[in-house]
Simulated scan of single mutants.
Amino acid sequence: MKFPMRGLYAITQTDHKSQGTVIDEVEAAIRGGTAVVQYRDKNPRDALALARELVRVCHRHNVPLLVNDDVELALQAGADGVHLGKDDGHIGEARERLGADAIIGLSCYNSLDRALEAQTHGATYAAFGRFFPSNSKPLAAPAQLDTLRQAKQALSIPVVAIGGILPENGAQLLAAGADLLAVIGGIFDREPEVSTRAYLRLFDQ
């Protein structure tokens, strides 16, 4: 499945939620118009079972499902790819395990150089952030709008923005060059289908 060139990128919120709730919320976000879903779970109980179910739900709606951090879990679950942070291994190794068609994204924080290197090594997209205070990553270093502007000029792969993004502040990231907005709490702290539609209006402006 192809990675979207534009749209909303939903990242699961799993803490203190049953697997059934996570699945229902993801399905609601997809109904609202989410273009891609990432399974992120820092305290998994049965990661493989949940990942497989999320793959099934996403594929039923022709939405790609990525796994955060874990190449082997992505492989076992039949996910469409993986998102890698700075300590999660090399893109080339992930590509070798997951295949030529896999989606492989990389966290680039506030570093254009890291994004350019990722593109050279075959990354599908580059993610920058955090741009605003974030409950999911409260200690993450801030990224600058100028980095987004430079990335949009320098990269041929999609640019993803992440970190504290809400419908009230997302427009400035799109204006600076973000192709996709990656969101956790702004979708899943509230009613996911309604929240997703609020984000999508930013892409229509």
Rank of each mutant, 00 (worst) to 15 (best):
A141F: 12
L166R: 10
A77M: 13
F203M: 03
N43Q: 14
V82W: 10
Q205G: 04
R114P: 05
I91M: 00
H121A: 05
G163F: 04
H59R: 14
P167H: 00
D88S: 02
D80I: 12
A176N: 08
K17M: 12
E168F: 00
K2V: 05
H83Q: 12
Q76F: 14
A182D: 03
Q150F: 10
A175M: 10
C108L: 07
Q119P: 01
G85Y: 05
Q150H: 14
A102G: 08
Q153M: 11
A47W: 15
A123L: 02
G78W: 14
A49R: 15
E117L: 14
K86C: 06
K17A: 11
R190V: 07
P64R: 09
Q153T: 13
V82E: 08
P142G: 07
Q19F: 15
F132H: 08
A141V: 12
R56T: 14
V159Y: 07
R201H: 03
F128L: 01
L145I: 15
D101G: 13
R6A: 03
A151K: 06
D80W: 10
V71S: 11
N43P: 00
G99E: 13
V37A: 06
D204L: 07
E27T: 08
Y125M: 01
A74T: 11
A118S: 10
V183N: 02
P44H: 13
Q38G: 04
H90T: 09
